[in-house]
């Protein structure tokens, strides 16, 4: 890093990548699933009709089931600002049904920096892995948050 920005991202990566730092449970409700789908312009009845035999949550609904703790305790205070959403990757492993009880575990998947239209930025990638009440993996979400340097 530059002299003005003495962050040692390599050291942060080696200490924090893969460290599991939170676990929470989530219970998706049918009404929220339908409202979400409607707002996004969804027209497929699997996401809109609670009585459809294959009624399920929108595939990316797990992106809001984030850990209340964004970073592990003791994680260095890097970057500035509230953080901008830098992108999401959602792996959909199985449908999520209304009433499922999902358990999500949080890890830091990556930390890196780059420059772009908005200047120099640091990217923090938080990964949430979800399983349902049967222990079946249903979703993996990578959250990418951008902070200014």
């Amino acid at each position: 890093m530059s002299e003005e920005n003495p962050l040692d991202l390599e050291a942060i990566r080696s200490e924090w990548l893969g460290v599991e730092f939170d676990e929470r449970t989530f219970e998706p409700e049918a009404s929220r699933m339908i409202a979400w789908a409607e707002a996004c312009g969804e027209t497929d009845p699997r996401f809109l009709d609670e009585n459809h035999p294959d009624f399920q949550a929108p595939p990316n609904m797990t992106t809001i089931f984030n850990s209340g703790r964004f970073l592990p305790e003791g994680f260095p205070n890097i970057g500035s600002g509230f953080g901008i959403d830098g992108g999401k990757t959602v792996e959909c492993l199985a449908p999520i049904r209304a009433g499922d009880v999902l358990t999500g575990t949080a890890t830091i998947a990556d930390v890196f920096d780059k420059t772009g239209r908005s200047g120099t930025m640091v990217f923090i990638v938080q990964r949430m892995t979800f399983s349902n009440q049967s222990g079946e993996p249903v979703s993996v979400v990578d959250w990418k948050t951008i902070r200014g340097i």
Binding site: W36, A37, A39, C40, G41, E42, T43, D44, R46, F47, P58, P59, N60, T63, I64, I84, D85, G86, G87, K88, T89, V90, E91, C92, G116, R117, K144
Partner: peptide, 29 residues
């Protein structure tokens, strides 16, 4: 950003009714 991802999913579902999206990966630029 998540809602914009929802727009894209809705577009895919409309294009191919009954399809299954196994992965969606968006970069907000």
């Amino acid at each position: 950003g998540i809602m914009s991802q929802g727009f894209l999913l809705a577009m895919i579902h409309r294009w191919a009714p009954g399809c299954t999206v196994h992965k969606i990966d968006t970069v907000f630029r």
